[in-house]
Design a protein around this nucleic acid. Structure first.
Lengths: 131, 131
DNA sequence: CAGCATCCTCTTAGATACTG
DNA sequence: CAGTATCTAAGAGGATGCTG
């Protein structure tokens, strides 16, 4: 699919690095807009946290999704992962500078949603009502 | 799941309308962060467009996803849908004021991604390299 | 404690074919 | 032209059990 998209964009005469950008933007946007990502980033915005603390604070997330999302975030350099060689083991996650700037950007969008949520909810009701 | 989340948040002592907000924010964020939504909204930012025009401009989208996403956008009051009683039929989609404000907010996030994409790409390479 | 591996289910979205 | 209907494949994500 990525390849097909690439080919199609190329056929349309889109510049190569624009294609690169579109793919990456899509990809990063998918991560950023992700349900769990938003919640984790928001949670970490207030300071470093341990795995279990996150698991308890973000109700409903499974261990699987928590570690997968944290790993993805770590991979993108949005959080740091610090494992202390203790017994019992302790691992702390913390936003990087990049992660904090993301938190701000996300906050901006969340603010938009909060500002317009009632309007949207109203539109949905109206739409579902008649139509 | 929504119900379980609700119950858990309540158990944690989260205020009822905060719970409502969290659910809605998640929901709207999922729509807003959606791959096709972003592309459609971005495309419509430059003016009203017909179904086929969108389909051609947004390469890779299927008819199914285009109509589904447009319908969702319409439901949320982010775009208007105007069908002209002609032969052959003509339908135009256009951002509403709300849709335009969303376009701006999305643009902000897209800008963040564009600004930091190389850093993220570098982080990924580094992560995949060693680890 | 902090997770990974496995299994299994449910949703998502593409392809294809058909309609007002 | 502007969709809808149906089928199917791929992936997301939950539950469970096990490990450094």
């Amino acid at each position: 699919m990525d390849v097909a998209l690439r080919a199609e964009l190329a056929a349309q005469g889109v510049a190569p690095d624009c294609i690169e950008t579109i793919g990456l933007v899509r990809d990063i946007l998918a991560r950023v807009g992700d349900k769990w990502t938003v919640l984790i980033v928001t949670e970490l915005a207030s300071g470093p946290m341990r795995y279990t603390a996150l698991h308890e604070k973000i109700s409903g997330i499974s261990q699987r999704m928590l570690s997968h999302t944290l790993r993805a975030l770590h991979r993108d350099g949005l959080v740091t992962r610090t494992a202390y060689a203790e017994v019992p083991p302790r691992v702390e996650y913390e936003l990087t500078a990049l992660g904090r700037s993301l938190a701000q950007a996300v906050d901006h969008l969340v603010l938009w949603v909060r500002t317009h949520q009632s309007a949207i909810a109203g539109n949905r009701d109206a739409f579902d009502g008649d139509d």
